[in-house]
């Protein structure tokens, strides 16, 4: 007779080794990595003409805009960017920018490095980001092993995790949620919609950038970011993130 215990034993342990070990290929599908020009920056102009969201300019690739639509692949690009892609600054998301990289600021909530409580706000998403954030609770990622807990009220939270492109209707509720968070607090923008408007940038009635409404401490690019990326962003809030590849 099958039992839940039997099923659990049979299933075994599937929990990710991340962040002790790098994210596996199963955890990050091809589109989980940002595109890079395989043959150097001379391909950038070609990519810029293919990109529907303006993530590729003549000089750099803006991971904060890329929706991973793969239109640039024929132009010599490949999804081979770094996995640990969350940054503390918006400019940190722009790769290939010739200007010297600004030093990474100190983590906003370093004092809470053992346990951090997170409240999720959907400011206007397609539901994919929400589900990826909720996936952190499943046995594969099990965010609680890292002291990341989700709360039911912003009053109990340290971190506001915002997904989606902020709509005009959500500005007030979003601000109320931010105000309800006790200080010290941090905001994590998850997904390119929250960072730059993503696929919806420039639409009337939408606010393209979350950081124009509330101060953002960590940016997690992706459309949507995989759960390990969200985890990376949250750990970066408390200063426990993995060192970025190639940095």
């Amino acid at each position: 007779m099958p039992t839940w215990i039997g099923q659990a034993v049979r299933h075994g342990i599937v929990t990710s080794r991340y962040p002790a070990e790098p994210a596996s290929e199963a955890e990050v599908p091809p589109t989980g990595r940002p595109p890079v020009a395989v043959k150097g920056s001379k391909l950038l102009p070609a990519g810029a003409s293919l990109c529907p969201v303006g993530a590729i300019s003549d000089r750099a690739v803006d991971r904060g805009r890329c929706i991973r639509c793969a239109r640039c692949l024929p132009g010599g690009f490949e999804f081979r960017g770094p996995v640990e892609s969350a940054t503390r600054t918006r400019t940190g998301l722009v790769t290939g920018e010739p200007s010297p990289a600004a030093p990474e600021p100190t983590p906003p909530l370093a004092a809470l490095s053992r346990s951090v409580h997170v409240f999720l706000v959907d400011a206007g998403s397609c539901n994919a980001c929400n589900l990826e954030v909720l996936a952190l609770a499943n046995p594969f990622y099990d965010s609680q092993r890292l002291g990341v807990f989700f709360t039911n009220s912003p009053r109990h939270a340290d971190v506001l995790l915002v997904v989606g492109v902020p709509t005009e209707e959500m500005v007030e509720p979003l601000r109320r949620a931010y105000d309800a968070l006790p200080a010290p607090k941090a905001v994590v923008a998850v997904g390119v919609c929250a960072i730059s408007g993503g696929a919806f940038a420039g639409t009337p009635g939408l606010h393209d950038a979350l950081d124009q409404l509330v101060p953002v401490d960590v940016y997690v690019p992706g459309c949507p970011p995989a759960p390990v990326h969200v985890l990376d962003g949250l750990l970066r809030v408390v200063g426990r993130g993995r060192k970025a590849e190639g940095a």
Binding site: S153, R155, E172, P173, L174, R176, D179, A180, P182, A183
Partner: peptide, 12 residues
């Protein structure tokens, strides 16, 4: 001391 304002699920 951490203080928080009233929260009504995003409603005024």
């Amino acid at each position: 001391r951490r203080r928080a304002t009233l929260w009504m699920a995003g409603n005024p």
